[in-house]
Computed example of a mutant assay.
Amino acid sequence: MGQVIVHATMTVDGFIADIGGEVDWMFGRPSAPEDDAVVANVIERIGAVVGGANKTQTIDDGEIPYGGMLNVPVYLMTHSPHDPIERDGITYTFIVDDIAEAVELAKLAAGEKWVSLLGGSISRQCLQLDLVDEIHLDVAPVLLGEGIPLFAGLEKRVELERLETSAFASETHLRYRVVHPT
């Protein structure tokens, strides 16, 4: 089975969105083909996504994982049951309160490909449960000062082994293996 990864673009001060949830700071920066190649390499290896459902359990345009660049199953965490939604050839399955189940279903769907975890809360919950194999961060050269953090609130220490580091025109790309306790 494939790996479970946290894949996120974040600011140097650790935020994945501004205080209102907007991510416009991610766009409009100069980039190099090498930046695009790093992200494309990750995207082509993703076979399923686990994220959080919005309060209305709908799939709005701005909430489509990876801006619609992926055509893979998406598992959304929620607190109340909801039938799956099909949109643009992608099936969104809602999982009630059991993140381990969501990850297991996503791994089965992904096969040998990766399961990408989206969002700070989802990532922290999976790290807490030792469900994460790797962390892939694309760090944008901006400080927001406040916003939605990726790792703040994680309630345990997680050791990482650096696998890869690269920096080009627009971002620094970091890849770590999660060192699981023995």
Rank of each mutant, 00 (worst) to 15 (best):
S80T: 13
A140I: 14
H136S: 07
C126M: 00
G28S: 07
V42K: 07
I5S: 03
F94V: 03
V158N: 02
G67R: 07
M1G: 10
R162K: 14
R45A: 14
Y75R: 06
R177E: 12
S80F: 07
L131Q: 04
S166P: 00
V6Y: 06
E34Q: 15
F94P: 13
G20I: 00
K107P: 05
D35H: 01
E146D: 15
T165L: 11
L144G: 07
I135W: 07
F27T: 10
V74S: 05
I95Q: 11
L163E: 13
A102V: 03
E146R: 15
D133S: 09
I19P: 00
I19Q: 08
A40E: 09
G21M: 02
E44L: 04
G111L: 10
C126D: 00
P30N: 04
G153S: 06
L150R: 09
P141S: 12
M1L: 02
G51V: 01
L143D: 05
A152T: 15
A40H: 00
Y176L: 06
V96K: 12
A53Y: 06
D83S: 13
P65G: 01
R45G: 08
L76P: 05
A109F: 05
F15I: 02
Y66I: 00
L144N: 07
E44T: 09
V50R: 04
V74F: 09
D88G: 05
H79D: 14
L129R: 15
N54Y: 00
S123E: 07
D36K: 12
I95P: 03
A169V: 11
G89Q: 04
D130L: 06
G47Q: 03
L143N: 10
I16W: 06
E155D: 15
